[in-house]
């Protein structure tokens, strides 16, 4: 009798272990490059593009790297929490712009461009609080559906441009850009 009850306890413990270690879907994103980006000092009327190398057409400013382990479409968004602000002063939405220059994915080792997933390939102004759909995963021209891209993930690259209005008041202006991935 005693032996039978011990076996039961062992069997129950084994079953519980499997319940806790069961696998599910996972979606991760890292922001690569600077998380603190500075246009520096600009005079009224100045225009500047924020990229690692303005003369290199392949350069970018920063990028997100997204890894998904399930074959379910995911979307990447970008938004500005506010206009560039200094106290009560702001720089207009159309003055601060972004675009996505390149997106590519890899499952293990081989990288493929997926420009069809990019939604904004020309400069667009950051309307305050607007969540822009920057990239959509999924069917590629070159490869079957790559919603799941483990282990290497998908990169989406960004460049930013700022034009200071000719009548802008002097000051230090800041804003926060939020990158979101949903699945």
């Amino acid at each position: 009798m005693r032996l039978f009850s011990e076996q039961n306890r062992i069997l129950s413990a084994v079953i519980i272990f499997f319940m806790l270690s069961g696998t599910g879907s996972a979606l991760t994103m890292t922001l690569q490059g600077n998380s603190s980006l500075d246009f520096g000092t600009m005079a009224p009327g100045d225009n500047k593009q924020l990229t690692t190398n303005p003369s290199d057409s392949y350069a970018y400013c920063n990028k997100i790297s997204v890894v998904s382990n399930v074959d379910t479409q995911w979307n990447a968004y970008i938004k500005a929490d506010s206009l560039l602000t200094s106290g009560t002063l702001t720089i207009p939405a159309d003055s601060f712009q972004w675009l996505s220059t390149y997106a590519g994915f890899s499952k293990t080792g081989n990288w493929y461009a997926h420009t069809n997933g990019i939604r904004y390939r020309t400069y667009t102004g950051f309307a305050s609080g607007t969540n822009y759909l920057a990239y959509t995963s999924g069917t590629s021209d070159l490869d079957p559906a790559v919603n799941d891209n483990i282990t290497d993930g998908t990169e989406v690259q960004f460049i930013y441009m700022l034009t200071i209005p000719t009548d802008q008041t002097a000051g230090l202006y800041t804003t926060r850009i939020v990158y979101t991935v949903t699945q």
């Binding site: 994103m29 500075d38 600009m42 800041t174």
Partner: peptide, 24 residues
Amino acid sequence: IGGISSAALSTNQQATFTVSVASV
């Protein structure tokens, strides 16, 4: 428990942008 794990996922990152508009 194995049938409940398909909720929508979301994650985000942030970056701060600054510019100093020069005095004229």
